Computed example of a mutant assay.
Amino acid sequence: MATKIRLARGGSKKRPYYRIVVADIRAPRDGRFIEKVGSYNPMLPKDSENRVELNVERIQHWLGTGAQPTDRVARFLDAAGLLKREPRNNPKKAQLGRKAQERLDEKKAAEEEAAAAAAAAAEEAAAE
């Protein structure tokens, strides 16, 4: 059976609370799970020690049996020193989209035309 270590959402509307669970990959997000191995409360400050709670022994057991953590859980495990997570590489993240790039090019062209027109007007005034 393929298993994942993932987050199961709980809490009320606009007050999220997550259980870190080991579940079959086919089970629904908030549905049946095999074992609860921790919790995550995003409402607490980032430096709070109770923000992420992990049962280290059980997580190591499940990682040893082949359970794959999701990306967010892998970040928690990396912070706790249980798993080495390689940083992702997205070289296109800072690049503008096609339409935004076109708008920027049009704006630059308009500024260059305005600067050229101003320079021509200054030369004409100086020539008189």
Rank of each mutant, 00 (worst) to 15 (best):
G66S: 07
S48M: 13
L7E: 02
V37T: 09
K4C: 05
N55S: 15
P91Y: 08
R85N: 00
K92L: 13
A94Q: 15
R98M: 13
F76A: 03
T3H: 08
L7P: 08
V21Q: 01
R103V: 01
A122D: 09
P28Y: 13
Y40T: 03
P45K: 08
E106G: 12
E112T: 05
L44H: 07
R72Q: 07
K4N: 02
G66N: 00
A117S: 14
A27F: 04
D105K: 10
A79Y: 03
P91E: 04
P42I: 01
M43A: 07
K46Y: 14
Q60C: 02
R29A: 03
G10N: 15
K99Y: 12
A27Y: 05
P87D: 08
A74L: 01
N89C: 00
R103P: 00
Y40I: 09
V37K: 04
D71L: 10
A118S: 07
V73Y: 10
K92C: 10
E35R: 13
G10F: 04
V22T: 14
K107C: 09
A126L: 15
I25S: 05
P69D: 04
S12N: 04
I5M: 06
G10V: 07
V52I: 06
Y18E: 04
Q101L: 11
G97Y: 01
K107I: 06
Q95L: 11
G66T: 02
S48Y: 04
F33Q: 01
K4A: 14
A121H: 04
T70L: 05
V52F: 04
D47K: 06
I34V: 15
M43S: 14
E49L: 12
Y18F: 15
V22A: 07
E123S: 04
N90E: 09
I34T: 02
P45E: 15
I25F: 08
A100R: 09
Q95S: 13
A109G: 08
V21E: 05
